[in-house]
């Protein structure tokens, strides 16, 4: 009898040990104004995914510019305030990316995006004078960070971390996964994809790049590991008035939707925040600007550019891992 018992317990430990290794857990839910899914593989998958979800909801309540009671909302209302570690980190990074991209990334555009009605979806085309006035407030260099305190130095200045918050969140989830002992996982925060390690069977993750023309196939497929893939394009959110389509990525220089000839920009890097911030800013820069930025930048990232005319360009670092039915050019670092 004792032998049988002992044997059974050994069996349990042994067998469940195996099945744990191949175990996968995922959860999908709505947060940050989009649909998210989080998948972890490994023994601790369930608890890791639960912690990830908690983290997402926590960050949403800190970083959303549109949620009352969020830290960013309060900061915009009061013009200054003491903020949590996470929010400070994201603001600091936003300001860093703003400098890095010479203003193509601008976290202080909220007064202008509000004029266009993007946050509350009450779309309209503002008057030129309105835009010019609002643009005077869109000055990231007037945002001061002092330890845990942030001051917006222009009256009426407002920040929106939307173009970087999801990237920060996905990187943070990957950190949680690692802390939980997860070696394989994938998060998709409404099209912001970040992967950890490889798939459980050791093969690379396949991430498809959405086609701005949704009625045709994907732009291509990317085989990656440990990378964040973020695509930005005017197709994601837009409205049409008098036959003209206005999209949500505004050019910080003139306050109008960026008409750079690009239809979508994908940035691939190890850092979710870098991918997120650069995908928006490179979209604003246009094809030539984006290629130039890629060539000159010391940051480690790769790009996929898709123009309005349907021309596809891929940077050299991912050219071999990118698979597409379309022809594509390869851009190299000098």
């Amino acid at each position: 009898m004792k032998k049988v018992l002992a044997l059974t317990f050994i069996l349990i430990i042994f067998l469940t040990g195996c099945s744990f290794g191949s175990y996968s857990y995922s959860d999908s839910f709505f947060a940050m104004d989009t649909y998210m899914s989080v998948t972890a593989n490994g023994a601790n998958a369930q608890s890791a995914v639960k912690k990830a979800k908690k983290q997402i909801l926590k960050l949403e309540n800190l970083l959303s510019a549109h949620k009352e009671k969020s830290e960013v909302y309060r900061l915009n209302k009061n013009g200054s305030g003491k903020l949590s570690n996470d929010t400070i980190k994201v603001i600091k990074n936003a300001l860093k990316f703003s400098r890095l991209t010479n203003g193509a990334f601008n976290p202080a555009m909220l007064p202008v995006t509000k004029l266009w009605g993007f946050p509350d979806k009450k779309y309209r085309v503002p008057k030129k004078s309105e835009i010019e006035n609002a643009l005077k407030l869109a000055k990231p260099e007037k945002i001061y960070v002092n330890k845990d305190e942030v001051t917006l130095n222009l009256k009426g200045e407002e920040i929106d971390l939307g173009a970087i918050a999801k990237g920060y969140t996905s990187s943070k989830i990957i950190e949680i996964f690692k802390r939980e002992g997860i070696e394989s996982g994938i998060v998709n925060l409404g099209g912001n994809v970040q992967t950890l390690g490889t798939k459980p069977d050791g093969s690379l993750w396949t991430v498809a790049i959405e086609n701005p023309d949704k009625n045709s196939g994907y732009l291509g497929q990317l085989k990656i590991k440990d990378k964040a893939v973020v695509t930005s394009g005017g197709y994601e959110r837009n409205f049409t008035k008098n036959g003209k389509t206005y999209h949500h990525i505004l050019n910080p220089e003139n306050g109008y939707p960026a008409e750079s000839g690009l239809s979508s920009v994908t940035v691939v890097s190890r850092d979710g925040m870098l991918s997120d911030a650069l995908s928006t800013s490179l979209f604003v820069m246009g094809k030539n600007g984006a290629e130039k930025f890629y060539k000159e930048s010391e940051k480690d990232f790769d790009i996929i550019l898709y123009t309005d005319g349907g021309k596809l360009t891929v940077s050299q670092g991912i050219a071999d891992s990118f698979n597409s039915q379309l022809d594509f050019d390869i851009v190299k670092k000098d």
Binding site: F30, G191, W205, V207, Y218, L222, T231
Partner: peptide, 27 residues
């Protein structure tokens, strides 16, 4: 390809290919 999402209704319409070769769609 990809998905249509109706946020106010929490509705998600996803096209899934049967070969399951794609793990996620960026966009």
């Amino acid at each position: 390809n990809g998905s249509i999402i109706c946020l106010p209704h929490r509705l998600v319409i996803e096209i899934e290919s049967n070969d399951k070769s794609i793990d996620a769609v960026a966009g």
